[in-house]
């Protein structure tokens, strides 16, 4: 699965979307993989990520089995980054999501200096990843291009909905929920921040970018009829 590769949008729309992955050895040859992943996430915190993710347990905002109607008013909407770090109990893919180039570039440079020995990928615009590499004095190893969506594209909803829903490549954010959140924001029933929070909880890898979602929702409110 290429869970971040096929995010919808042009290169400019990824100016606030940088996902940096750390992937330990698949055959678990590294006995220090877990502490290295903890270190990766702890370092990420220094650069103010908008999300952290552990592919096994989820992101900084998670779904809950114990919700009642009052959750609409009293639910904690703050991302819990420490829960991601403390909850990482087995080596798995970890991700840090940033909403600005400077933070991503600094983080990549720092991770290179830490020399953790794990495979690290940057998922963003091609130019954005190149700039991260240049800043860190790294030569790219390989690149996987997204060629976008083809075929019966008439089955895909409008660009705002698709931009939101494709921020979870596993399809855990339904088009209908994304559309509902856009409508709620347009009707002033939810703020863009609240709607982005709701969407974020469905991404079980923690790679959803709530900052980008907030921008898209704000844009939908102000720039569409």
């Amino acid at each position: 699965m290429t869970n971040t590769l096929h995010r919808f949008g042009d290169a400019a729309s990824f100016s606030d979307d940088y996902i940096v992955f750390a992937i330990p050895s698949k055959s678990n040859k590294d006995p220090n993989a877990l502490p290295k992943l903890h270190r990766f996430l702890e370092i990420a915190m220094e650069y103010k990520p908008v999300n952290l993710g552990d592919a096994r347990h989820g992101g900084a905002l998670r779904s809950s089995k114990n919700l009642g109607p009052l959750a609409h008013w009293n639910r904690d909407m703050k991302p819990d980054f420490q829960a991601v770090i403390k909850g990482l109990t087995v080596p798995t893919t970890c991700a840090a999501v940033f909403d600005n180039a400077h933070a991503a570039e600094q983080f990549v440079k720092r991770i290179k200096e830490e020399d953790l020995g794990m495979s690290v990928n940057v998922s963003t615009s091609i130019e954005g990843a190149e700039r991260c590499c240049n800043y860190a004095c790294i030569d790219r190893h390989s690149v996987g291009y997204s060629l976008g969506f083809e075929g019966k594209t008439e089955k895909i909803p409008n660009s705002q909905v698709t931009t939101l829903s494709t921020m979870c490549g596993h399809g855990m954010i339904s088009h209908s929920l994304a559309k509902k959140m856009i409508d709620f924001v347009k009707e002033n029933r939810r703020t863009p921040e609240q709607a982005a929070t709701y969407l974020s909880r469905f991404c079980s890898c923690g790679i959803f970018n709530p900052s980008r979602a907030k921008r898209i929702l704000e844009d939908a409110r102000t720039n569409s009829k």
């Binding site: 290169a11 055959s27 006995p31 060629l147």
Partner: peptide
């Protein structure tokens, strides 16, 4: 195609010596 987005491997991974530990949790990423 107008290439916009990619996943870029920045080449920091290293081969490590094998251990007898059980296989890691797999993740679909």
């Amino acid at each position: 195609y107008k290439l916009q987005r990619a996943k870029t491997n920045i080449g920091l991974g290293r081969v490590v010596e094998p251990t007898s530990e059980p296989a890691r949790e797999t993740a679909n990423v």
